[in-house]
Structure formats: C-alpha cells, structure tokens
Design a protein around this nucleic acid. Structure first.
Lengths: 346, 346
DNA sequence: CTGAAAGCGCTTACAG
DNA sequence: CTGAAAGCGCTTACAG
C-alpha cells in the first residue's frame, strides 16, 4: 500500500505534481503525466480515500440506505439489486461509488442515518421505504445533504426530490378491471407496517371505488406482512368472512404466492373461483399458474431515474442534469394474466 | 455540521481533551467528560470519519462485496439480507459499520475490489460467490487486508478464512434418499457460470453415486442460470431426453419454482410422477405444493458466524475471537417434503 | 488531568 | 510547468 509520497520519491518529483498528473489537471507536462500514470499503474498506487475526503470535503460516494431487518427483507428480495444496478450505471459516469448502507433491524432508521450523515461517509443519499411521516427526510434536509427518496412521504412538505411507483394508477386499473367483470366486493391486501405506499394505495382504491359508485367497506382492507406468508394470511381471512369478497388486490409481489397457495388449499383456482391481481411483475410471478395479472416496470430504469435525479440536486453535477427537483410517479404497465379472468356470477 | 474545533471552543477546552472525553479514555475528569458528552449531544457532534480514518489508519467499517449484475441477482434475492443482518449484529458489538459494496454487473469483480481496497474504504472484507479460481482471494491476501470468503475456492491455497454451505452433505443426502426410493437415473441442475459451488456439488454427487455403485452419466448434468427460468429450462431438457431420468436434484432454491412449473405443464406432479429435491429452504419453498424436500439453515446464524470469524482475523479483535483462521462447512438440515415421495416403479 | 503540537495522505492556491 | 507549503479534522504521544 504505497502512498503519494513514495510514488513521488520513486519518480523524483514533488507530490504536488504527482497529484496534478493523476487528477488530470491541464497544467502538467505530457511526458511527466505519462511517467506518473505509468509508475502509478506499476506500483498499484490508488489515492487514499480518507486523505482525499479530508482535503476536498467530499467522499465521491453515494449511500443507498436499505433495511436489513426481517420485516422489510421479505419484500425487498431482488427488488433492490435491480435498482442498484441502474443507479450504479449512472454514478459510474462520474466516478462515484455506491455504498449500500443496511440499517440493522434493531436500530432506529433515523438514528442510523444520522450517524452515517454526521460521519460524512457519503456525499449524497438515497433512502427507500419511506413512511408517511419520515424523520429521515427532515434530517437530511436539515443536514443539507443532497438526497432522493424512493417513495413519497408527508414529511418535508413535498419540496424534496422523490420518485415513487404509480400506486394510484395500479389501484385504479385493478379496480376498473375487476368492476368491469362484475365484482363489487373487492378485498385489498396491504402491508401491516406504516410504510407510506399502503396509504397511497388505499387512497387510490377508495377513489376508484367512488368512481364506480361502490361503497367502501373498511372490513375488506386486510393488513399483513409483506411476504408470502402475509399473502397467505390475508387470503385466509378473506375466505373466512361471512360475506366473502370475490376478488383480491395485493400491493406486494410476494403476497400473490401465499394467496395462490391458500386458494389452492381451499380447492379454488385464481381466475376461476376467485379473482386475484398482484402488484409488480417479478420473475416469480411468471411462474405462477394461472398467470398472475400484475404490473410491469424496469428496475434498472428506475435505478437510472433515481441516479440521474439525485445528481440533479448535487451541486457539482446539477449543470449536467438540469431537471432540478424531481417529483416523479413511475409508470407501471398492466400485464394481463388469467388470475382475474373470473367473471362474477349473479 | 460542527467539527471538534467548534465544540472545543464552545466548551472552552482544548480539542485534545474533547477527543479523549468522547473516545472514553480513562484520563479525563468525570465532570469534564460529562460536559463534553452533553455538549456533543446537544450540538449533534459526531466525529468526521475521514479525519479519524486518516489519523488512525483504519475506517471502523467492514465491506461486504456482492454482485449487483443480473446473473447473480437472481440467486441472491433475500439470501444476502438475512446474512447481512447477522453480520451486523456481530459488528455492532464493536461499533463497526457494515458497508455493502455492490460490484456493477459490467465491471470486473477483481478490479472493483482492488479499487475499494486501495482506497482504504474498509478495514476488512467479506466476499461471496467465490469462483473456483478467484483472483480476489490472492488480491486480498497480497494487500494484507483481513477478509473472509463466503464460499470455497482453489485460490489462496486454502490458508484463508472461509465458511461455506455443506454442498457435499446436501448432494450425498439427496442421492441417498433418491436411491433408497429406487431411482437410478438422477439428473442434476447446476449453475451455468463457473461459481465454485457448482464444482463442489457435482463432486458430492459423483461420490454419492459411486457409493451406490451407480455409473455417473455426464449427460444428466444440466447447467442453467440460477433462476426460476433456469430451473424451468433444466426440467424442460430433462423431460425431452430419450431415456429420461426419474429424479432431479437442484442446487439453487429458485430453480425449484421453474421445475414445478414445467412439470405442471407436462401434466406431472412432483413426488408423484417425478422426484425433485431442492436446495435451501426459502420462504418461497414453503409455498410450493407438494412440499419441496430441501435443506434448512439460518441465514442470520451464518451471518453471525461470518462476522465472528472475520473479527478473529482482524488484529484489534483477534483476542476477543480466538478461533483463529476459520475453515467451516456450514451444516444444513434435511427438511423432508413430498416432492421426492415418488417411488420408482420397476 | 489538560494543553500544545505533530502528523495521518491528500489537494490546491501561490510563487517562481 | 513545477515545487514548497498550508490545511482538511481528527488522535495521540509528550510535557507539565
């Protein structure tokens, strides 16, 4: 692990010139630069990041906070890996590194984030799984650290950058499809924690029902963990109702797995005896039978959108990405399956 | 973002004393320490990590390299989130942070790792998805950075710390079960990339067949992506053989999903017309019907094992974790299902 | 028990 | 075009 000092000695020039050559400053003799670059490659010199950080006041790194605790882990599965790949694609253009910061399940997310921010471990942050009231947004705003949220929140007065999936669009299209097939009693499976997407999705459902002049029945809203097991449990409760609904809309992809299983146990087939509409089209959804009606999006494109929108609020890159403060609803495309093909009799 | 200087001014004492008080040195007056701690909390002071790093020569952070590219993403799903939670649990005891370092799909893993190491972004590394020959192991050894591998490799001469799943145990028990039920022609689904676990698993299969005096037939080894789709494809190929096997052993949990689907399409039921044994018992496996015979392990415990074994090779913690250089095969417990209940006729 | 000072490895005005 | 020097924010021997 050689430092700039030894590299300079090796070349018999000053560390200042070495630094300038390595950092691509124009005021360096071509021959000198060549020699420096060659020696650096040969000796495997890479600038110590802490030294740079301290001097420059930045880290050339962007953090992506996720939660590693059991609760959200169920949902996240490969969702984040796909998004991360897109984010990195954008950051790589500017030699920025992405650090994934997993908040331990037993630590308060705000406290964890505060620690990361105060330590100045990154120049900017991406946060995800936003809650209706989310202290992290106020915290980041106050710290003046550039950030973007994957998800909306009522915190921050909507004057912070965010990208969020089109939950209201999905809710509306799901209800439209089911109502068109004659369904009137439609159950909705929501997450049991107070993540904001649950509220937004529910609002979308309520609005859609109103459009169709269907009275909203709160007993048809069922909450459970965002996992296969949660979907199983929701379906179990649905089937146990005295006046059971004929359709179920789910807000998490994994829930559909449990729903199919529970229906199977009851001798029912999705799209035959009961209608199911899932959320995101995941690789798994493609292997459900009958095919699940769900909604398609590109995780990588979402990651690219997040990355570019984040750069737009980072001073050194704002000129290159002039979109300003992005508030974007990410569209999702309906993938018609057979799971809601059932037309209610009567 | 207040620094130690301003905190010291605020308290009217020297920065040295502030630092000592904050870092829990014994040679500080109790009353002084109390005042410092109080003021730090009040003003929200947290030491700038770059300053500390530079001075101390360490980062108080451990890196966990994963691959965010499409290929491995399929496999990883929630595997890593579970492991990470366990690792963090251990690191938290010593105020070490875990940084997940996702290697972009389009970057060479060794190059990426080299960059992270040279930048001195972390004090130690966890690498995963080891290949048979894995340059990262030699690289880390050469850089003298403490590390542990989740997975074995022929690189590094086996004198580096690793923990790996018990692939040979799984292979042997799977074959034993199938042979006991009369199967002689058993197909094996392996990953198509050259990740080392494929080789180890195959060796285990070969050994088990030999024990049972069954000739090894290379045409029964089928390689595909470590995804649902891969499992589908493998099963498709199996069914198309002119002398089809009667059983299939898979090395990735998600492959079972695709296998079930393909069998279903062929009008076959796992455990009835054809035997299937999966690998890790994932939340998903629990929702397959009929129940998949697979193998159980605790991701969190594996994470704890990795964390502790890593600390054992980090000089400041080696005394607390005296296990030395760990080479451990992680046991997996058979979870009998119905997917291999089929007894071959004839 | 506390303060003054050195120095970790860089980058960057400033002279020349 | 290059060198000498300052300084980023810390921690830690060293004096007292």
């Amino acid at each position: 692990m050689i430092g700039i000092k030894r590299l300079a000695e090796h070349l018999n020039i000053s560390i200042g010139t070495v630094s300038r050559a390595l950092n691509g400053r124009p005021d360096v003799n071509d021959e000198t630069r060549r020699r420096v670059l060659e020696a650096a490659a040969e000796l495997g010199y890479v600038a110590n990041q802490s030294g740079r950080n301290l001097r420059q006041g930045n880290t050339n790194a962007v953090g992506f906070m996720i939660e590693s605790g059991a609760d959200t882990a169920g949902n996240s599965d490969n969702f984040f890996l796909g998004v991360i790949d897109g984010v990195q694609h954008v950051l790589a253009r500017h030699d920025l590194d992405l650090l994934v910061l997993p908040c331990p399940g037993d630590e308060n997310p705000s406290q964890y984030l505060q620690r990361m921010v105060s330590r100045r471990a990154v120049d900017a942050m991406i946060i995800s799984a936003t809650h209706r009231v989310d202290a992290r947004i106020d915290l980041l705003t106050k710290a003046r650290l550039p950030f973007i949220a994957l998800g909306r929140s009522t915190s921050g007065g909507n004057v912070y950058p965010w990208i969020d999936l089109d939950f209201e669009g999905v809710a509306n299209r799901a209800i439209d499809r089911l109502v068109a097939k004659g369904h009137r009693r439609i159950a909705v499976g929501l997450p049991s924690n107070d993540i904001n997407l649950g509220f937004i999705f529910l609002d979308g459902i309520k609005g859609a029902l109103k459009r169709h002049k269907i009275r909203f029945d709160p007993s048809l809203i069922i909450r459970a963990a965002s996992t296969e097991q949660g979907g199983y449990q929701i379906t179990h409760e649905v089937l146990a109702m005295k006046d059971p609904p004929t359709a179920l809309v789910l807000v998490y992809e994994l829930m559909a797995i449990g729903a199919y299983r529970r229906l199977g146990e009851a001798g029912m087939t999705p799209g035959k005896d009961f209608a199911v509409i899932g959320f995101r089209e995941s690789p798994l959804a493609k292997f459900l039978q009958p095919a699940l009606t769900c909604f398609r999006m590109s995780l990588r494109d979402l990651g690219i959108g997040l990355g570019e929108s984040l750069l737009a609020v980072m001073p050194p890159y704002a000129d290159t990405y002039p979109q300003g403060l992005v508030n974007k609803i990410w569209p999702m495309e309906l993938v018609p399956g057979e799971s809601d093909a059932f037309t209610r009799k009567g």
